[in-house]
């Protein structure tokens, strides 16, 4: 558990981060969103003490971060920097291996881990391992940056716009990969993004920053249903709110008995996607596969009812 307690950072008397408090549960992803200059990066960097707070304290599992030497603290915390920050004089493999080497892992273990991570991010190890960062595309550099942060399997991962330079397809794949990795390892992730969509899609919790202050910290559905301020409502995107809400709910939640024809869809498909399929095919209902029962169905009416049911 990470407790951020009344933390502030002043630059020339002006607060970049203004008395932010929040608690992050172990094993969850928190998406930190806000406009440019709202203090997201500064907040993140105070956690691994790349920036020393002007006041306040951060505790990891009850232990204040100020009780450790900064470089020792940082070896335990994965950090994917905004704009990758790869070492240009190291190969891809050596970049990814940076922290495991510091921690004294064996050569074989490091090599296996590097290949595993490259595979995970859809980069053929034999093709990419020995390249230098200058020989990669922007998106590939960014994935290597994230792989470097993940390499030592840290319990806590800080990621600053890790997927900013990726195209939508690779981006959504990288997000799914991250989610899967996080689920299997149970790591705690704090991820900065300016994209509310990404925060809602990835986050168990969403923290919205505005001008240095934390204006709302809640589950994605809560943020969409009940934005705390006009700013949050704007971030969530007024007219898109019902669709955002539907994107959080799997069809399994409202699958009912009843006949339809066609091929059954996966029960984890979001209601938003199901709605799109209905509209595109001009159908009133879609069959849904069920693991322990014959296929059921989801109807357009049920989706509509669910979208309206936000009070």
């Amino acid at each position: 558990m990470i407790e951020i307690d009344q933390i502030s950072k002043l630059y020339a008397g002006k607060a970049a981060v203004d008395s932010v408090s929040m608690t992050v549960e172990t094993g969850t992803i928190t998406g930190i969103v806000g406009t440019s200059g709202s203090g997201k990066t500064t907040l993140l960097r105070m956690i691994n003490r790349l920036v020393e707070p002007s006041s306040g304290e951060v505790r990891i599992n009850g232990e204040p971060t100020s009780s450790l030497a900064p470089h020792i603290l940082r070896r335990r915390i994965g950090y994917a920097i905004q704009g990758h920050g790869l070492f240009p004089h190291y190969t891809v493999a050596r970049n990814i291996a940076a922290v495991p080497r510091l921690l004294g892992w064996s050569k074989d273990k490091i090599a296996a881990r590097v290949d595993e991570l490259l595979d995970l991010f859809s980069m053929e190890p034999s093709q990419f391992r020995d390249r230098y960062p200058a020989e990669l595309s922007g998106g590939q550099q960014q994935r290597v940056g994230v792989a470097r942060a993940l390499a030592s399997r840290p319990d806590l991962l800080l990621m600053d716009e890790p997927f900013g330079a990726l195209d939508p397809i690779i981006r959504s794949r990288a997000q799914d990969d991250l989610r899967r990795i996080q689920r299997t390892l149970g790591s705690t992730i704090m991820l900065v993004t300016h994209d509310m969509e990404e925060a809602i899609h990835l986050g168990d919790q969403v923290a919205v920053m505005d001008a240095g202050r934390l204006v709302q910290h809640a589950a994605p559905a809560e943020i969409i249903r009940a934005p705390a301020t006009d700013f949050v409502a704007e971030m969530v995107g007024g007219v898109e709110r019902p669709l955002r809400l539907l994107s959080l709910i799997p069809v399994a939640d409202i699958t009912e008995d009843g006949p339809t024809d066609g091929e059954a869809i996966d029960p984890q498909t979001s209601l938003r996607d199901a709605l799109a399929m209905c509209l595109w095919a001009g159908r009133e209902a879609l069959p849904v596969a069920r693991p322990d029962a014959p296929p059921g169905r989801v109807t357009l009416d049920a989706i509509r009812a669910r979208a309206a049911d936000h009070q």
């Binding site: 940082r74 335990r76 920097i81 510091l102």
Partner: peptide, 15 residues
């Protein structure tokens, strides 16, 4: 030196 690289060097815990 490129600031993001220097920053990353601190960030991963090099003394």
């Amino acid at each position: 030196l490129p600031p993001s690289t220097v920053e990353a060097a601190r960030g991963i815990g090099l003394n």
